[in-house]
């Protein structure tokens, strides 16, 4: 059972990696553009002389940008790849008619989305050093990053399985992903909002990705609650992913 699950998950992952290898250059270049722009504009342009919580704005904003690119990277990796293969090339049929479990199919897709999200967010961490950021990278930082990538890859999978067109897919990211980009404490503290708004924003998962990564990177208090919320999101979205995949036509 377990061996079969691992083998089948790897098969799904393997195909994604072959595809990634074939378009690696454009993937690599593509995943650098927006993080670099964020680092340039917010790290250097806006935040050069700003201090926040007794540290430079750069140190404050980099964990937020890491969370943001983890979200974008894994959501679009899983979402785009699956929606194209379901709606356009129909290659999802090959997986649905194969003798593999829904669990392996979902796990394989989520883990390859995760992998790409981790890859692009690692690039940012690397770059941020050249920009002069000083982050504390511990095991818990990595755990938060992994949870972030996992939950947004699962969200991408759910979106890809329920939309009925490419327009549907981009509508989903306009209404779900884009608002989080600006609202969820990437560039400023959520506490700056009026209390009511802050409460609302704290429902959104990206908020807790930024809070966790930032708290760990800045050696602040351990973000236990946020990590638990992330884990809950990851579990619920993964289960939802299984449910929609078992029913998708």
């Amino acid at each position: 059972m377990l061996m079969e699950l691992i083998y089948d998950t790897y098969t799904v992952f393997w195909r994604e990696m072959i595809l990634l290898r074939k378009k690696f250059r454009s993937f690599f270049a593509g995943s650098m553009v927006s993080p670099l722009l964020y680092l340039l504009s917010f790290g250097w342009g806006l935040g050069r002389n700003i201090q926040i919580d007794g540290t430079s704005y750069l140190n404050f904003v980099v964990p937020g940008i890491v969370a943001l690119s983890a979200m974008n990277g894994s959501y679009s990796a899983a979402g785009t790849s699956l929606s194209v293969s379901r709606l356009y090339h129909k290659t999802l049929e090959e997986f649905l008619t194969a003798p593999i479990s829904v669990l392996s199919l979902v796990l394989g897709n989520v883990s390859s989305g995760c992998f790409r999200g981790l890859f692009s967010s690692s690039l940012i961490i690397l770059f941020s050093y050249f920009f002069g950021a000083n982050l504390h990278l511990s095991g818990w930082f990595f755990v938060s990053l992994l949870l972030t990538c996992f939950l947004f890859a699962a969200l991408g999978l759910v979106a890809a399985m329920v939309v009925n067109s490419h327009e549907g897919m981009s509508r989903f990211s306009t209404f779900v992903i884009l608002p989080m980009t600006f609202l969820c404490g990437t560039f400023f503290k959520v506490e700056n909002y009026p209390a009511a708004v802050a409460t609302l924003v704290k429902i959104l998962p990206l908020t807790h990705c930024s809070i966790s990564l930032r708290a760990i990177a800045m050696r602040a208090e351990f973000p236990l609650v946020s990590l638990l919320i992330l884990a809950a999101y990851a579990a619920v979205l993964f289960a939802l992913g299984m449910w929609v995949t078992a029913r998708v036509e």
């Binding site: 079969e4 098969t11 393997w14 195909r15 090339h89 129909k90 090959e94 997986f95 003798p99």
Partner: peptide, 21 residues
């Protein structure tokens, strides 16, 4: 058609072989 068009003919076959263990 539901082949993986970015993959070669052999890779498509290999994927299927892996899916069927």
């Amino acid at each position: 058609e539901n082949l993986d068009i970015k993959l070669t003919a052999r890779e498509n076959m290999e994927l299927h072989g892996r899916l069927f263990k």
